[in-house]
Amino acid sequence: MKQLMQKGWKPVLVLVLLISIWELSSRIFQVPSWLLPAPSLIFRTGVEDWLNYQHHILSTIRLTMIGFLIGSTSGIVTAVMLHVIPALREALYSLLIISQNIPVIVLAPLLVVWFGFGILPKIIIIALVCFFPIAVSSLEGFRQTDRDLLHYMKMAGAGKQQVFWKLEWPSALPYVFSGLKISATYSVMGAVISEWLGADQGIGVYMTMASSSFRTDRVFVSILFVIVLSMLFFSFIMLAEKKMIRWKPEREE
């Protein structure tokens, strides 16, 4: 933590500098606020408008959580199934790898056609966005299980279940977490995009309303919250990883 403080001051300084330049130049050049609002204006809007948009944020957080939980759970379960059932793996593995390259988000309009504007298509989008990184990463984790350890376990008489729970699962756990971290950031993005397509609340809704009425300051406030949510979510997972995986040496920076 101390190290972070010692090293962290430089990027913070750069950030402060950038924001100051932005503030100053929008005052000096009198940039119209619908084009580029000054940081001070964005901040004021953020504070004053809080009561008007806080329910949007809560709604997005809820949506993100549900989608993330469903997507990551099914991603992990799929990876486990493919791992323990070789026939299934042979049939689906390459498809899974290829489908990784499809930007799932393009399916969103289709899902709206099929499921309407309710919460279901949104959850499906977020779940899909989360599913692939976790499934692929976990599967890779199972594949990376150390051969010597596997031989040891088998010769010691461990059955399939023991091999899985005592060896393969813990050794894949770091991979599961790297999948979860990617999905955590994707899930917030997925939620906002799904809200753009039509919803009655959410940051995405607040954003589109603000942009169509040229309240650029509000657009910036929403962008800020999307960034903060993504980062919070990411650090939350990272914290969980640190708590659960203690068997690795602290990496020296």
Partner: peptide, 11 residues
Amino acid sequence: YTPQTPSLLPW
């Protein structure tokens, strides 16, 4: 059996 590497489970 003990394999060529010590093969302790890291976790």
